[in-house]
Design a protein around this nucleic acid. Structure first.
Length: 579
RNA sequence: GCGGCUGUAGUAUAGUCUGGUUAGUACUUGGGCCUUCCAAGCCUACAGCCCGGGUUCAAAUCCCGGCAGCCGCACCA
């Protein structure tokens, strides 16, 4: 069912150059869209605003990594093996099913994670049939959602289009850690394309095969998930649809950040702060708080590496609640995994507040006996003693009278070969894998939500009520009539505005009302009109998109006033007093 | 990926069943006239049968395949 509002929004978006499906003249390919002339500007403005929030506001830094990644990296992240679904096809009705779901339904056995061959065996052993028509099922195959490609002329190296931008941040972690001078917490962001070869994407811009993400990876000390700015936001209200609420089929809770923390609804200050920040961002680009909720992942749907995960969902009349942002505590899963696969130490040294001093017993060889006893093997054996726990050696002496060491042959170290000493060891800190807090924004879905929620349908006009600082065109310029003088003056104003850095459009076609309507429709916040009075006293009118009100302002002050209005230094209503 | 329905200018549609002249209309858009501020009016222009194959003297129309959209199923780490 297509809602009227969705349809109207998408029609205007297509007609006026915001968004349309790609490759249209070749019938199109589902899951791909073009941003048109206005859409591309809008998207850039939204992404720029995102940078204002995360890079400027939070002090994170942006990096840019390739969209094609080698197989090893995605093997480590788990995508090669797990970003996949086991599928089986019915030989009779040709329907395709999730093989693990079929098995679970038929015999109740959980086969998720098993190899395809194993699942195939289970299917044939238990004579599991097509759940629809009872036909025979084919062998199980994996459908991996990544686009595969070959790297290099010989095509020997397998690569994939990245399924998320996050991995590009984890992989150079060592360099990033050095850049941030080895201190937690720090945040790194990446904005860019990601790719998922969806089986059958059918929700327009909501499920794309190529889409834009804006992700921040915030590396924190697992022991300290507080946030320095939490006290500033503790009274902010959030609409939290916790997993408990969902299971009890209750409405989302409207609580303050502090309450969310006190009642352990959200697991950490760090995470709550990110929820709040996402809400603030959406509010400022024009998606109201009322249209949002934070939905916590149910324990059953949460990825195995996450300990808490919240989706920011926006209400749409066409698709219901749509996830537009995911905010997760990914723990140390990614860094640990990349560490294991690459054999690089991706840990951070955390210095204790106070160095700890530990009493420890160490084993020291008594060289005058030890040397002659073991001769050439002595250096190797000393190394072994150094690495072995002194208590273990003592225990072995008590039980066996010696401590056996396997090298090229077995050496028996006797009590007289060594002395034990008690020493005070000072431990200044330890190496740990940081935990990762990850806000992950789906920019395309946000653009869709933004268009949907800013679209205003009034009796005689419809328009996108876009925030002044993200509207693609800042100002329109019109001559009231196509008469000598007015046209020239309007064209000049347009050029002046452009040279001042604004995207300005001139329109002289049709009547003035039609031009206002065209300008409103694409969300241009302000319109300048040159009329008869302008020619006499060098003033023009400025019109506000949202209420059609107009004021008369001096020609000379046009660029300054437009600039102040677009950057919210001044309010439109304030113009009346000032002039 | 499966099944059902659908596909005509930028948009909305007539024509398709029952094959037959130059595919009609409205809005939009461009140019012009008119016009003293919110899609008015007049003139004029641009623009279309989803793609490929088949049947036929002749295909927008009938048949087959593909693609896309919508709906249902499945999928969405």
């Amino acid at each position: 069912m297509i809602s009227i509002k969705h349809e109207n929004v998408m029609n205007v978006a297509k007609k006026r150059g915001f968004l349309w499906s790609s490759f249209e003249i070749y019938s199109g390919v589902s899951g791909f869209v073009d941003y048109g002339p206005l859409g591309a500007v809008l998207k850039n403005n939204v992404m720029q605003k995102w940078r204002d929030f995360y890079v400027v506001g939070e002090g994170f830094y942006e990096i840019e990594s390739p969209t094609i990644m080698p197989e090893e990296a995605l093997k480590a992240s788990g995508h090669v093996d797990h970003f996949t679904d086991p599928m089986a096809e019915c030989k009779e009705c040709m329907d395709v099913f999730r093989a693990d779901h079929v098995v679970k339904e038929a015999i109740g056995q959980e086969v998720e994670g098993l190899e395809n061959q194993k699942i195939t065996e289970i299917i044939s052993e238990n004579e599991i049939k097509c759940p629809k028509c009872g036909g025979h099922l084919t062998h199980v195959w994996s459908y991996n959602l990544m686009f595969q490609t070959l790297i290099g002329a010989k095509g020997k190296k397998t690569g994939y289009m990245r399924p998320e931008t996050a991995q590009g941040i984890f992989i150079p972690f060592k360099r990033l850690l050095r850049f941030f001078r080895n201190k937690l917490p720090f945040g790194v962001v990446q904005l860019g394309k990601a790719y998922r070869n969806e089986i059958s994407p059918r929700q327009g811009v909501i499920r794309l095969r190529e889409f834009t993400q804006a992700e921040a990876e915030i590396f924190v000390n697992p022991e300290d998930k507080t946030h320095p700015k939490f006290s500033q936001i503790k009274a902010e209200k959030l609409s939290l649809y916790s997993s408990d609420c969902q299971l009890a089929t209750e409405e989302p809770l409207k609580v303050t950040a502090q309450e969310a923390l006190d009642n352990k609804i959200v697991s950490s200050e760090m995470l709550i702060y990110q929820l709040y920040l996402a809400q603030k961002f959406l509010r400022e680009i024009g998606i109201p708080d009322e249209a949002l909720r934070f939905r916590q992942h149910l324990p059953s749907e949460m990825a195995h590496y996450a300990i808490d995960c919240w989706d920011v969902e926006v209400q749409t009349d066409n698709y219901g609640w749509v996830e537009i942002i995911g905010i997760a505590d990914r723990t140390d899963y990614d860094l640990k995994s990349h560490s294991e696969h690459s054999s690089e130490d991706l840990r951070v040294f955390i210095e204790y507040d106070e160095p700890k001093s530990v009493k420890k017993s160490i084993t020291k060889p008594n060289m005058s006996i030890f040397g002659p006893a073991f001769k050439g093997a002595a250096p190797e054996l000393m190394k072994v003693l150094e690495e072995s726990d002194a208590e273990k050696i003592q225990k072995s002496f008590q039980e066996n009278g010696n401590f056996p060491v396997e090298l090229d042959s077995t050496y028996e170290i006797l009590p007289e070969h060594v002395n034990f000493e008690e020493v005070d060891e000072v431990i200044r800190g330890e190496k740990i894998f940081p935990h990762v807090i990850e806000p992950s924004f789906g920019i395309d879905r946000i653009i869709y939500s933004l268009l949907l929620h800013s679209f205003q349908e009034e009796e005689d006009r419809s328009y996108f009520k876009l925030a002044k600082d993200i509207a693609p065109v800042g100002v329109s310029v019109f001559p009231l009539l196509n008469k000598e003088g007015m046209v020239e003056m309007a064209l000049k104003i347009k050029d002046t505005l452009r040279s001042n850095g604004f995207i300005a459009e001139y329109d002289s076609s049709g009547t003035i009302g039609r031009r206002y309507a065209r300008s409103d429709e694409i969300g241009v916040p302000f319109a300048i009109t040159v009329d008869h009075e302008s020619l006499e006293d060098k003033t023009v009118t400025i019109r506000n998109r949202d209420d059609s009100k107009q004021y008369r302002i001096p020609l000379k002050k046009v660029p300054e006033i437009i600039s102040d209005l677009l950057t919210s230094k001044k309010e439109f209503e304030g113009l009346s007093k000032e002039l």
